[in-house]
Amino acid sequence: MKPVDLWRHEARRAGLPALLGPPVLAALILLLAAFGTRLGSREENTRWMLMGALEMGVPLLSGMVAATLPGRDPVAELRLAIPRGYRPALLRRLAVALGCTGACAVAVCAALMASGWWTFAYGGAAGQLVWLAPALWLAALGFFAAAALRSTAAAASLVAFVWTGEQIVGGALADNPAYRLLHLFATTSWGSDGWPVNRLFLMSTAVLLAVAGWLLLGNAERVLRGEPE
């Protein structure tokens, strides 16, 4: 089997919703940028919502995708028995789905920067961290929770709770130095103050979560004993 066939197979396993969600979100963001003023939204409000959609919408999608994809193999016994292993296949599947999300987010960022909607202090490549850091963190959380709890519903619930909870407590915990490091939506909540450190901390903790999930998925018996439907 050629590598391209493997990738094509995993793209099909990821499913249409995981691949179509990001372009739909990107289209909605661009439509808001184009017609927001005509809909009666003030410029500042539209700008905040565009950044919000990028910083909150993209991570929600990637977190849910990462929480859903590991638990969808009806013949996991077979996949675990093949020499190339289950984990690389799963990684390919996640890479396809998250890659699609990332490509759409980069395109939206470029469009916002080119059209003058982007007034955030960090632009260009560093500006991509607006969506990349929270998206990676929530995806890593979803991946880890799916591996640890072996239940898609539970992993998705955790991602959903963290996503909503972070929006609600962002304002109340603005003075807590530990929370400032871990807040997912620092761009839209607090602006550029301490932003690079927050992004770096999110990315490094995301790596830890992903590695923990990877190690858990290495235990074939654990994977097979997933929660019954």
Partner: peptide, 19 residues
């Protein structure tokens, strides 16, 4: 809707329509 799409929309609905 597929469950994954529904969950994303449900969370978005909860945030938009209630919070």
């Amino acid at each position: 809707l597929p469950p994954m799409v529904f969950r994303v929309l449900f969370v978005a609905y909860w945030f938009w329509g209630n919070v």
